[in-house]
Design a protein around this nucleic acid. Sequence first.
RNA 1: GCCCCCAUAGCUCAGUGGAUAGAGCGCCGGCCUCCGGAGCCGGGUGCGCAGGUUCGAGUCCUGCUGGGGGUACCA
Length: 629
Amino acid sequence: MPDLEADFAAALRRAASALGAREGVEPAVEPSGQPEAGDLSSPVALRLARDLRRPPRVIAEALADGLRTEGLAHVAEVTVTGPGYVNVRLDDATYAPAVITEALAREGQTVLAQEPAGRGKVVVEHTATNPNKAAHVGHLRNACIGDTVARLLRARGAVVEVQNYIDDTGVQVADVLVGLRRLDFPPPGDLDPFDQYCSRVYVEVCRRYEVEPALLEERRTTLRAIEAREEPVAGEARRITARIVEAHLGTMARLGIRYDLLTWESDILELGFWRHAFDLLQRSGLLQHPDAGPLAGCWTLPLAEGEAVEAAPAEVEAKVLVKSDGVATYTAKDIAYHLWKFGLLGLDFHYRLLQPGGPVSSASTPGGPGPGPAGFGRAARVVNVIDQRQAVPQRMVREALRRLGHVDQARALHHLAYEVVALSPAAARTLGIDTSDGRSMYALSGRRGIDIGADALIDEAQHQVAAKARDPETAHLLAAAAVRYYLLRFGLNAIITFDFEEALRTTGDTGIYLQYAHARACGILARTPPLPAPDRAPRLAPPERELLKRIDQLPRAVAAAAETLTPSGLATYAFQLATAFNDVYEHTERIYRLQDPVERGFRRALVDATRVTLAAALELLGITPLRRI
RNA sequence: GCCCCCAUAGCUCAGUGGAUAGAGCGCCGGCCUCCGGAGCCGGGUGCGCAGGUUCGAGUCCUGCUGGGGGUACCA
């Protein structure tokens, strides 16, 4: 008995087929909107009405007859209501134990919903924070989305490899080098984290560019030296970016976020990835090198007439891959990187283990452990978690793959776009930001110093929660739960208008509430000794029926969230599950007071099934379930 | 200008084309001889505007208004 909704849908499909409905009409099945009508309902008769040229009500009755004849497991009654809904009422006595048995069997399972087989490895790229400053809440949103997407894909049985791309040869790194060299900042104190120190340098140097154009020239020469791997600049860049990457890994680890592989842009240059990709593009006749015009001296990837990237702005006639000073753009290196991700480049990184238990890092020199028998990269599918503002360059990467003849890979490259984190004008003012321009929101920006530090937020959450937590580790896990849940519960298209009070809230629709529900279930189980779970359920209270249906939904919720790559759907599911459990908790007799062993055994098993199911949902959200608070 | 996203309750947000659109917060009022109350229960004439498609539209299409983003030799 795996899945009641799926069984119902399958039976409807058979019944519809018997009526002569054409194939391909997937019967929608949902928990009934009207509890008195039944437990599960389907409006499929309404959809079939046109095809079959019969009134929906008549079709619904015929479908219901078919279901009754077939005799579905765990179904007590089939009814037709309203304009033509087919409903089933479940047989409490048998479906309830079946759901519980199924849920308990999921304990310790890593695969919760089976992926259609044979899709190969999925490479998920996320975080990719420029290594020149401390991570802020916007970067945290990226990482939480990416991390949960990776967990969801794994829960569907996919082989997933998480990569964090380190843009250590970009302009922002040059900015900080210029700042450190020219601004006479006092060196950071012992208690002043290096990444936060660099954040201040970065903001200041960006401000100085406006009044000191000479600094801009210095940025250009610095960037060129980084790209050409000229010492001492390249070494300086590598030392600073390594320290900041270490800080980023530390910040993300506080939320349970880890990577399989760090890929360094400088390795892409040093190992000739870009050189080789350039040759491939050049040989395929895809590049232009104009002698005149605004792009004179650049190497560009033109948007040919008629085959332009979907929705590309008309003004974009070509994307610059190599600037007139010979420096490759981010997009150029990204094209090389993606050829490698799909195993199409014919070159590979060297690898080294950063530290025991930590991620593997790419390297440009041989040594250290190899990539293992499976190797890195060679993806069948790539998911890039990158904010919506980078949609155009992402399309260019895909377009380059397509024009090089890698049509399948271009199709398998998915830009998972999400909206930014912003501040309300009031919140911006409290941070001392000038809001006299009257904008309705201010997107977080490290460069402009519009910034909620990631570590600061986690620190604050931990501080708020410390008084009620039994120990510091519990406080840390509660804080992580609060922050992760807050950043995941919004849809990808929603701009998060950051609100400290809301992010740190401990009641209602929050990660803390979920933790509490899980701990409560554990507390009940600890108090009531195990009993054999009966194979027939006693009479159920309405909240218990709701809870059972939620528990039964887990695989469906996971499958849907994984399919659509939307963590927020899973967050909503977890909250509904916890709410259903709290409702039962509040409105049923305390288990330790029950005398009848059958009743006691059943209700304890229901709590246990809730515990297993909620823990699974929390793990997927990247929240470590707590047994005690 | 062109392209993308958004507009749902006082606020912040959910809502695979299906029945009477839901949460959280805030506000008011209830419920604890505890299974850990960070909880539960009650209190609500809300889908920006105008058309269209459909048996059925918050959801799809067109236009409009308002907001955000993109349209770099930044990423």
